[in-house]
């Protein structure tokens, strides 16, 4: 991470409470443009809450999140794309219709819909994109007729149509087979290298986090009250640059897995990508 640049996103003293119970506390973060931050942590440690706050789906109880030095809008906007684990694409639209939807919203204020020649133009404009995500043959199918991997490829492509500066991924590959995941990693890394957006990705898979990210954020509780386990919230306990040479005792996947209480098994390891920087 270069210090001279203005951070793309900075988080200052963010806390999040649900009904008086702290989930996150004292979160501080500066992220350089073009970073790929992977976020791991035990279940219920607030990593998805953190991602939802970056999306403005939820607002911090205290503290500020700044995007390019300005406070985040308080509702989701096109500058931040999102891919959820499921329900990310529109079930009533075909693959191609899902992909032209953002352009329809932009061009047709009143109807939100293209007709006739503009519709044909929009469909021909997405040929290349369909090719890239391998859904050319499935262009007229509905999401329910696609496999899980195809649906997530569509979801990622759809989220990138508006060219968001920040892409948020909430366990996007959590429901996919390991083999399919490797393909998805390649697609995602390729798109990230081409488009240069900043990515935040929540994952349960510690290998995925190490393989994809340029920076690993670990969420965990640092303060514990044995009499009141709900007393304290989680925060970022480890912030590891992954592109830099690995040093120190806690910077292997096994160690992080132990720290956050995620079972680690060598068989589950996903082969690392030699092309990845």
């Amino acid at each position: 991470m270069t210090v001279s640049q203005q951070p793309k996103l900075s988080v200052r003293g963010v806390e999040k409470y649900y009904d008086g119970t702290p989930v996150l506390e004292r979160v501080e973060l500066d992220v350089a443009p073009g970073s790929f931050c992977t976020i791991v942590g035990a279940s219920g440690c607030g990593k998805s809450t953190f991602l939802r706050m970056l999306l403005s789906q939820e607002l911090p109880t205290r503290g500020d999140i700044m995007l390019d030095g300005r406070p985040l809008p308080d509702e989701p906007t096109p500058d931040r794309g999102i891919v959820f684990q499921k329900y990310s694409v529109f079930s009533h639209l075909t693959v191609a219709e899902n992909l032209i939807l953002a352009k329809e919203f932009e061009a047709a204020t009143l109807t939100g819909r293209f007709f006739g020649s503009s519709r044909r133009t929009a469909f021909s404009d997405i040929e290349e994109l369909l090719e890239r995500i391998g859904l050319t043959a499935a262009r007229n199918r509905y999401p329910a007729q696609l496999s899980g991997g195809m649906q997530q490829r569509l979801a990622i492509a759809q989220a990138l149509v508006k060219k968001p500066a920040i892409l948020l991924l909430d366990e996007p590959f959590g429901a996919l087979d390991p083999g399919i995941r490797v393909d998805m990693h390649e697609l995602l890394l390729g798109l990230w290298q081409d488009l240069g957006m900043t990515i935040f990705m929540v994952t349960h898979d510690i290998h995925e986090a190490f393989k994809l990210g340029t920076r690993l954020l670990v969420f965990d509780k640092i303060r514990h009250d044995p009499q009141a386990p709900e007393r304290f919230g989680a925060t970022i306990t480890y912030d590891l640059p992954l592109s830099a040479p690995v040093a120190g005792p806690r910077q292997k996947p096994e160690d992080i897995a132990t720290v956050i209480g995620v079972p680690f098994s060598a068989e589950a390891a996903i082969p690392s990508d030699p092309n990845h920087p």
Binding site: L55, E75, I82, K86, F90, L101, A102, E106, Q158
Partner: peptide, 14 residues
């Protein structure tokens, strides 16, 4: 699903 509505917001829908 709330996810769909949020997705529409991030795609710039009014």
């Amino acid at each position: 699903p709330r996810e769909m509505i949020i997705k529409a917001e991030t795609l710039g829908a009014s």
